[in-house]
């Protein structure tokens, strides 16, 4: 028997809503992709929602977040408005990046959300640098950096963990191990498949966490953030998880068995969490229905906002390549 969910009803509902929000938003995105409203690459996070939602509970507004091209969930959980993300997917001026970034490059200064990097492991050094800036300026912030297990094959992963540990920088390394780097299975690309052990060899605290259990994620993130804020240097968390959908909308999924996908769907973080809460009597069916209705309303508004949005004037094409003088200090 698993232990009782150690959170209040209100917080449990918040976590559940956070995950449902990402799931339904992305389902809508897939639909809009088929309708050709959204173009380019679209990488869905469906199946992995517990990680972004759980981790964000431990972060504060002054902390920073950097993520990958599969970052809709992180952006939503961090507090970017759904409508500004949807408008960005549409390529509209009202999008969080005026339509210049798209699905893979969501940025938001207000919530200190630094992308949206589509170079595997390329965003990790940014978090190391943001952490160095915090340390040099005496701020006790956490700099959270999400990446997939595929990043472990890149030099920047190793260089970053080494440097952050060497300089005791406040970086929270968050590895979302969904077992496939695009279509390459972990055991087909890594001699040592235990990513958290690899990290540990650099001398920082490193844990493996069940990424399908939002409570386990939240608790681990809280532990890690406490240690980082306490000046103990960086911390590494590896979350085991699974991507329920194809890598992107172009992926025929030739590299994995349907049975494997099915088995992981049995561990759906939303289903498992909501069933547990129902069994424990912490929530009722009506609560779930209300969450679904709220989320549906938010999505409807977001789509309407994106549909009604404007296209940035093509004359503005060359803006934002260099700073506009007088705009910055």
């Amino acid at each position: 028997m698993t232990p009782m969910t150690p959170v209040s009803q209100a917080h449990a509902l918040e976590l559940l809503q956070g995950m449902v929000r990402i799931r339904r938003f992305e389902e809508k995105c897939a639909e809009l992709y088929s309708a050709m409203k959204i173009r380019g690459f679209l990488h869905l996070y469906i199946g992995e929602e517990a990680i972004a939602v759980g981790v964000m509970q431990a972060l504060r507004s002054e902390d920073s977040v950097a993520a990958t091209y599969r970052e809709h969930g992180h952006a939503l959980a961090r507090g970017l408005s759904m409508r500004s993300i949807m408008a960005e997917m549409y390529g509209k001026l009202e999008g969080c990046c005026r339509g210049r970034g798209g699905s893979m490059h969501l940025f938001d200064a207000a919530t200190r959300f630094f992308g949206g990097s589509a170079i595997v492991a390329g965003g990790i050094p940014l978090s190391v640098g943001l952490a160095l800036a915090d340390k040099l300026q005496g701020r006790a912030n956490v700099n959270a950096c999400f990446f997939g297990e595929g990043a472990a094959a890149e030099g920047e992963f190793h260089e970053s963990i080494n440097l952050a540990t060497l300089w005791k920088l406040p970086v929270l390394f968050l590895c979302e191990n969904n077992r496939y780097a695009m279509g390459t299975a972990l055991e087909r690309s890594e001699s040592e498949t235990d990513i958290h052990l690899k990290a540990q060899s650099y001398g920082l605290k490193s844990e493996a966490v069940d990424g399908m259990d939002v409570i386990a994620v939240e608790q681990a993130a809280q532990r890690a953030c406490d240690a980082i804020r306490n000046g103990e240097g960086p911390y590494f968390l590896e979350f085991t998880t699974y991507r329920f959908r194809p890598h992107s909308m172009f992926d025929p999924e030739l590299y994995r068995e349907k049975a494997e996908v099915h088995a992981w769907k049995e561990k759906d973080p939303i289903t498992l969490f909501s069933q547990k809460l129902l069994v424990e009597g912490l929530i009722r069916d009506a609560d779930i229905a209300r969450i679904e209705a709220n989320v549906q309303d938010e999505i409807t508004v977001a789509v309407e906002y994106a549909e009604a949005g404007q296209w940035e004037a093509a004359e503005d094409l060359k803006r934002y390549v260099y700073s506009e003088r007088g705009h910055h200090e």
């Binding site: 050094p125 160095l132 915090d134 040099l136 300026q137 030099g155 920047e156 080494n162």
Partner: peptide
């Protein structure tokens, strides 16, 4: 720095984003 060009340049970018002048 260690002999890690990619990360120390990336760290410079991050530090600049964080308010420093590297």
């Amino acid at each position: 720095t260690p002999l890690s060009e990619s990360v120390f340049v990336g760290t410079g970018i991050g530090a600049a984003l964080g308010g420093m002048r590297p």
